[in-house]
Design a protein around this nucleic acid. Structure first.
Length: 230
DNA sequence: TACCAGGTCCTCG
DNA sequence: CGAGGACATGGT
């Protein structure tokens, strides 16, 4: 099938991406590496990173996360308590820092008040419930909700982002809405967390390196299956 | 220099 | 609903 073929070509070309980057115990810098199991702290860091990376380059988010790590702020209770301005200062590099400070505190408050600060409890819900609930949190939209479900809760949902839209628009799947494009993947691929994890990460890599605003089609690994400019 | 980056919310028509 | 503006830093 076409979608699986594209996946395999991307994987072959770029190699495993080992998403989502998180910080190891004793360090402050998030790294991409294969991990058997995420700690609860790392899952929270993913939620935080998913909010911080909204319309922002990951590199800028990384600096913000390092600052949060230095202050031991990857912690629901501490985030809930910290002064908004101080938090904004720490995440300044990630852009939209006033908005994002509010978003992080809102998220922390929600988990603290509804799940006693216990993410694991929250993540026990099924995908539909989890998504529905995440979307009620101000600052968490569709992509952020799906990123949290896939990368932190480790449940199989396909994340659609600006790269996914651009790439598949060019390939020839002119899906209108977020859900339509998401369904294309969910209905034509095995609902597998690892597959969805790697596929989305590979699309981001393709979007960053090759299928850019101004695409570099000559070195694209999936040009054979693409209708762009043909 | 201007554009772009792993979006979301709010307001209007 | 769907379009359009606001939010902001850092890299190329």
């Amino acid at each position: 099938m076409q979608l699986l073929k594209i996946y395999n070509k991307l994987l072959n070309y770029f190699g495993p991406q080992n998403w989502w980057p998180v910080t190891n115990q004793g360090s402050i810098k998030p790294t991409y590496e294969h991990r058997e199991k995420l700690t609860e702290r790392q899952k929270l860091e993913i939620c935080i990173g998913a909010i911080l990376t909204q319309n922002t380059a990951w590199k800028n988010v990384e600096i913000a996360i390092e600052n949060l790590n230095k202050e031991n702020l990857i912690d629901i209770r501490k985030l809930k308590k910290i002064d908004k301005k101080k938090l904004a200062r720490l995440i300044k590099s990630a852009g939209y820092y006033n908005q994002k400070a509010i978003k992080l505190k809102t998220f922390a408050k929600y988990i603290a008040e509804n799940y006693k600060g216990n993410l694991k409890e929250f993540f026990k819900k099924d995908i539909e419930k989890l998504r529905e609930e995440l979307l009620t949190i101000k600052g968490v939209g569709k992509e952020t909700a799906d990123s949290i479900i896939l990368y932190a809760a480790e449940k199989p949902i396909f994340v659609v982002d600006a790269y996914t839209k651009r790439i598949f628009d060019r390939i020839g799947y002119k899906e209108e809405t977020y859900e339509q494009l998401q369904n294309l993947f969910m209905e034509n691929l095995e609902k597998d967390t690892k597959l969805f994890n790697e596929y989305h990460a590979l699309l981001v890599e393709l979007g960053k390196k090759i299928c850019k605003t101004k695409p570099l089609c000559d070195k694209c690994p999936v040009k054979e299956e693409c209708s762009y400019e043909k």
